[in-house]
Computed example of a mutant assay.
Amino acid sequence: MRRTAASRLASGVLAAAALLGVPEARADDVTARSGKVAARASDVTARSGEVAARAGDAAARGGMAAAHGGDAAAPPERTAPRPELTWDPSWPRFRASEYVAAGLFAATAFATLAIPPVEGRWRGVNGFDGAARDALRIRSDRQREMARDASDLLLTLMTNHLAVDALLVAWWGHGRGGVAWEIAMIDIEALALNAAVNGLVAGLTSRERPYRAACFGPEEEQDRDCRGSKRYRSFFSGHSSTAFTAAGLMCSHHAHLPLYGGGAPDALACAASLGAAAAVATLRVVSDQHFASDALTGAAVGTLTGFGLPWLLHYRGGAPASTSARAPREAAVSITFVPAPLGGYLVGRF
């Protein structure tokens, strides 16, 4: 009986303990599972942090790419602006005395046409001119006429190009009427001076042209080149001197004024004009209109006039307009005091 009661008591205790231990075990299981869930949540959070860090890194790289993209787009902003066509203040403008001088030069050039030729004053041919004529003169009469006409046409284009630079490029293209006027007047003055010098020398020397052997018979039946005083105006070549005067003027203007934007285009215009002038001088020799010494002397006089007169009277001592226009902006430093109620501010531009 006692064993039965004791057994029952032990069984009851064990059953009570079992009943009490089940919830506790379940609670521990739930707690363990919650810990696992929290651990997984922490792992997810850590992974989210890694994703966020990667996203931040990608954003930083995108920012760097954007910065590089901004740097790539920056060069057009840093590109130097097109030089302005301005007349340098250190260059003297066309003076009243130059207007008078240009008028006198033009009047003298027209007056020299009335100088009567002196037949036989200069008929001799030196060895250099004779050898050059034999080597360069075109044999065909028709081709010589074509070469002569080509020299006339090329010279006309060169002188007209001066007007194009002044009127169309400087005045209409750049909108600088004042600069256009200065260029045009310098051109007129130099061309008038060249024409006056050439007319005086050619009229007074009365050198007979190379084709004089073909001028025979009654004058009215001769070729037009043999008629009048033209036959005795060989020295020096007016075509050559005028062409090189025009080339010198063009080079002088383009060297100091960015008519075509400065740099290579303006340098190319100068080189092309010098080449055209050389072609004109050569055509005058091959067409038998002048001796080689006539063309060379004309080239020397024209070069001296075209380069020398603009430099001596206007461009000497002045900086190129393209440089002088940019210098103040590049080196400008200013400090300004701005007053305020309690004092003031210093505002600087560097």
Results as ranks from 00 to 15, higher is better:
Ser229Tyr: 00
Ala246Tyr: 03
Leu257Arg: 03
Gly306Met: 09
Asp294Gly: 03
Ala281Gly: 07
Ser229His: 13
Pro258Leu: 07
Leu304Met: 10
Ser293Cys: 09
Phe307Val: 12
Gly262Val: 02
Ala243Thr: 08
Thr303Ile: 01
Gly238Trp: 09
Val285Tyr: 07
Gln289Arg: 15
Ala279Phe: 06
Leu283Lys: 08
Gly306Glu: 04
Leu274Asp: 01
Arg224Cys: 00
Ala272Leu: 15
Ser234His: 10
Glu220Cys: 00
Glu220Leu: 11
Phe236Thr: 13
Met250Arg: 15
Asp223Met: 08
Gly275Thr: 02
Cys226Trp: 03
Asp223Gln: 14
Gly228Arg: 07
Asp266Pro: 02
Leu259Cys: 05
Leu304Arg: 00
Ser293Asp: 05
Gly263Glu: 04
Gly263Tyr: 05
Thr245Met: 07
Gly298Gln: 11
Pro265Thr: 13
Ala269Glu: 11
Gly228His: 08
Leu296Pro: 03
Tyr260Trp: 12
Phe235Gln: 12
Gly306Val: 01
Lys230Val: 06
Ala300Glu: 00
Glu220Ala: 15
Gly228Pro: 11
Ala276Ile: 03
Ala278Met: 09
His290Trp: 02
Gly238Glu: 08
Thr297Lys: 05
Arg233Gly: 13
Ala299Gly: 13
Ser240Cys: 08
Gly263Phe: 06
Glu220Trp: 13
Arg231Asn: 13
Gly306Leu: 08
Leu304Pro: 01
Gly308Lys: 04
Ala300Thr: 08
Ser293Gly: 00
Phe307Thr: 12
Asp223Ser: 15
Ala279Pro: 01
Phe291Gly: 13
Gln289Met: 14
Ala276Asp: 01
Ala300Trp: 07
Ala269Arg: 02
His254Cys: 14
Ser241Tyr: 09
Arg284Asp: 06
Gly275Val: 04
Phe235His: 07
Ala281Arg: 01
Ala279Cys: 13
Ala247Tyr: 04
Ala267Val: 13
Glu219Phe: 00
Phe216Asn: 09
Val286Asp: 07
Gly275Ile: 02
Gly262Phe: 05
Ala281His: 04
Tyr260His: 15
Asp225Ala: 14
Ala264Ile: 06
Asp266Lys: 00
Ala276Thr: 06
Phe307Trp: 14
Phe235Cys: 04
Phe235Pro: 11
Ala295Gly: 08
Ser234Ala: 15
Glu220Phe: 09
Val280Cys: 04
Leu304Thr: 11
His239Lys: 12
Val286Leu: 02
Tyr232Met: 10
Lys230Glu: 12
Pro258Gly: 12
Leu268Met: 10
Leu296His: 05
Thr242Asn: 14
Ala272Gly: 01
Ala295Ser: 13
Lys230Ile: 10
Leu274Phe: 15
Leu268Tyr: 02
Ser287Lys: 06
Gly298Leu: 07
Gly263Ile: 02
Ser240Asn: 08
Ser287Tyr: 02
Val286Lys: 03
Glu221Gly: 14
Gly263Ala: 04
Val301Ala: 15
Phe307Arg: 10
Phe235Glu: 00
Ala281Thr: 02
Gly238Thr: 10
Ala264Leu: 15
Ala281Asn: 04
Thr303Ala: 15
Ala300His: 07
Ser252Leu: 10
Arg227Trp: 06
Phe216Asp: 15
Asp288Tyr: 03
Leu274Ile: 03
Cys226Tyr: 04
Phe244Asp: 08
Cys251Gly: 13
Ser293Val: 04
Gly248Trp: 02
Thr303Tyr: 02
Val280Phe: 05
Gly262Gln: 11
Cys270Thr: 03
Ala246Trp: 01
His254Ile: 00
Leu274Val: 08
Gly306Ser: 12
Ala300Arg: 11
Asp266Met: 05
Gln222Lys: 07
Ala243Met: 12
Phe291Ser: 11
Leu268Ile: 15
Glu220Lys: 13
His256Ile: 00
